[in-house]
Amino acid sequence: MIPVRRRAYPTLLILVSIGLLALAAGCLGTAETDDYPPWNLTLLGDTEIVLSLDEIREMDAVEGYGYAVSTVGIRYGPNRYRGVLLTDLLGMVGGVGEDDLVYVSAPDGYMWVFDAAQVRGEELFTFDENLHEIPSPPLQVILAYDCDGKPLAHDNGGPLRLVVISETPDVITEGSPWVKWVDKIEVRRR
């Protein structure tokens, strides 16, 4: 047996591990908007509106830092996201009353439910770098389509993903509301 081959396995394992960690870290991958099949977002409220990805990209946009932690402690970010405020999208179908709930869902069946305060970026859990809970700075909930200046990669929830952003890169939010592959947002009146 040739000893050189045995030494190659640990090196290969290290390179593969580094690659996997880099992919898990955030906004890596390429995804031009032309790479996606036609993607529509359905907004339901007092009316129903269907928007294409191009129409969403033409709306007034906001930018901020998104940094999340999963339920098992994996961190994603910080990255700079660009997208449309969830409140602006909901305004197109009648807005959100204080007692309403907003259901954000994806084709894979994942769904997250927000109350009116959370839609405005309030009453969300925030953490510091040591994952200690901190008082929440101003937050915004957006439907993101860009990450670090590039179209949101499919591996990172693209073409449309819900993201909680702040003005600084050091605020970590709970990752559960960061719905990937968003295709439907519905206001349910109570």
Rank of each mutant, 00 (worst) to 15 (best):
V93S: 00
S70F: 04
V93M: 01
W112F: 15
M92Y: 02
V104I: 15
L90E: 04
Y81K: 00
R82L: 08
V93H: 00
V96T: 03
P107N: 10
T71E: 13
L90G: 03
V84N: 02
G109F: 04
P107I: 10
R82Y: 05
L90K: 06
L90D: 00
G73Q: 14
T87N: 13
G83H: 04
D108T: 15
D99M: 08
T71C: 08
R75K: 14
M111L: 14
A106E: 00
M111P: 05
G73E: 11
G77C: 07
L86S: 01
G109M: 03
R80V: 09
R82H: 07
R80Y: 10
L89V: 12
F114W: 11
P107A: 13
D88R: 12
Y76M: 13
D99V: 10
L89S: 09
F114A: 00
E98L: 09
M92L: 15
R75T: 14
A106C: 14
V102T: 01
L86C: 05
Y76F: 13
F114K: 00
M111G: 06
G95Q: 06
R75N: 06
G97P: 04
G73Y: 05
I74Y: 11
T87C: 08
D99W: 09
L89P: 04
L89I: 13
L101Q: 08
L85F: 03
S70R: 07
D115W: 14
N79K: 09
M111F: 03
W112Q: 11
Y81I: 04
G97V: 06
W112K: 11
Y110A: 10
G77N: 05
G73C: 11
W112H: 15
V96C: 01
D115Y: 12
